[in-house]
């Protein structure tokens, strides 16, 4: 996990600490946006997911890193960002068990942290999944009910409910992004867009799970990063739940055409007939937050291809963690 500090220009003596759990595709984008907005990378600490005992030790170390600032009478606000997740859309209950346990431990830890310094404003920013919650639903609007169809979505819903139950007295902001794409470094999970771009570059075949007409909603990770960072660093009023979607349905066919245009290479495809990932998920524009301005899909794909291309050219030595969080 990553700890950042931000000093507002009008209150330089009162630092604002932000702790980000998970620095993958979305978490990394949030960290980059925070740094871009003036936050400083303070420290990077490990968090064990396998052993409960080691996890508690790691959390205690994180608490000790954060709290001295407060004891010094400076820290007024702490924002915790949960953007971690080890299991993907097709994960089983067994694979998701560890994630749920870690999430519960961190929420309990955050509640205890808030209890030990009740004069400090603590906010939890939780990244959930609109795709998991509304899988198989189209025209999702404010009245739509979350009806997960698989363990991944059900776990996300359980996490939301758990956070709402336990985070009393804390500010809780839940973000529900749709299908996220963008450059997230070498370790992160590779989604449809990244896989297609990378395979086209390597002249390798891509396996498509779903029909050519499977309609989804795609958003760029950096858009989420900017939105969440603005919510953390400015006094903009955030809704308790923000659905971060583009409001523009995109079929696999359209996505393939866009990527083909961007990479200017043939896309070799293998279509998997398995219907398990063929459900449509689309969102009505009326559900989108007021200050949310998603990037146009083709522009986003071009940006992603450029970042992937640069990483491909520079190789692993040019893509170390420091570089991943660098701005520009």
């Amino acid at each position: 996990m990553i700890i950042l500090e931000h000093r507002h220009s009008h209150h330089p003596s009162r630092p604002h600490t932000i702790a980000v759990f998970g620095a993958g595709l979305v978490g990394g984008a949030i960290v980059r946006s925070l740094i871009h907005a003036g936050a400083v990378l303070a420290s990077e600490l490990p968090l064990d997911w396998r052993s409960g005992e080691r996890q508690q030790q790691d959390l205690e170390r994180i608490r000790q890193t954060i709290l001295p600032n407060h004891r010094g009478g400076h820290l007024e606000r702490l924002d915790l960002v949960w953007a971690a997740g080890k299991a993907g859309f097709g994960a089983t209950w067994a694979e998701l068990d560890g994630e749920m346990t870690t999430f519960e431990n961190i929420i309990r830890w955050a509640v205890a942290l808030h209890g030990s310094a009740s004069d400090m404003q603590v906010n939890l920013h939780m990244l959930s999944s609109a795709g998991g919650l509304f899988e198989g639903q189209r025209f999702v609007n404010r009245e739509s009910q979350a009806r997960p169809l698989r363990p991944y979505g059900a776990t996300k819903l359980q996490q939301e409910i758990f956070a709402q139950r336990h985070c009393t007295g804390m500010g809780l902001h839940i973000y529900r992004p749709s299908s996220v794409y963008g450059f997230g470094g070498p370790k992160g999970r590779s989604g449809l867009v990244n896989t297609l771009i990378q395979n086209a570059t390597k002249h390798a075949a891509s396996r498509i799970f779903g029909d050519m007409d499977t309609v989804r909603d795609y958003i760029l990770a950096s858009d989420i990063g900017s939105f969440v960072a603005r919510g953390i660093l400015t006094n903009v009023t955030l809704a308790s739940i923000s659905t971060l979607a583009s409001g523009k349905p995109t079929s696999i066919m359209e996505m393939l055409r866009i990527i083909g245009r961007v990479v200017e290479r043939p896309l070799y495809l293998k279509l998997e007939s398995s219907p398990s990932n063929a459900g449509h998920i689309t969102f009505s524009p009326s559900i989108l937050p007021a200050h949310w301005r998603p990037t146009d899909l083709e522009t986003g794909v071009r940006q992603t291809a450029r970042h992937l291309g640069l990483y491909f050219e520079r190789g692993p030595e040019g893509g170390d963690r420091a570089a991943l969080f660098s701005v520009g």
């Binding site: 209950w93 899988e135 198989g136 639903q137 189209r138 025209f139 009806r147 169809l149 698989r150 363990p151 059900a154 219907p275 398990s276 063929a278 459900g279």
Partner: peptide
């Protein structure tokens, strides 16, 4: 917990 993977079949035809 048991969880069955099902697709939403009760949705109407959308125009």
């Amino acid at each position: 917990m048991e969880w069955h993977l099902t697709m939403a079949s009760d949705s109407p035809i959308f125009v």
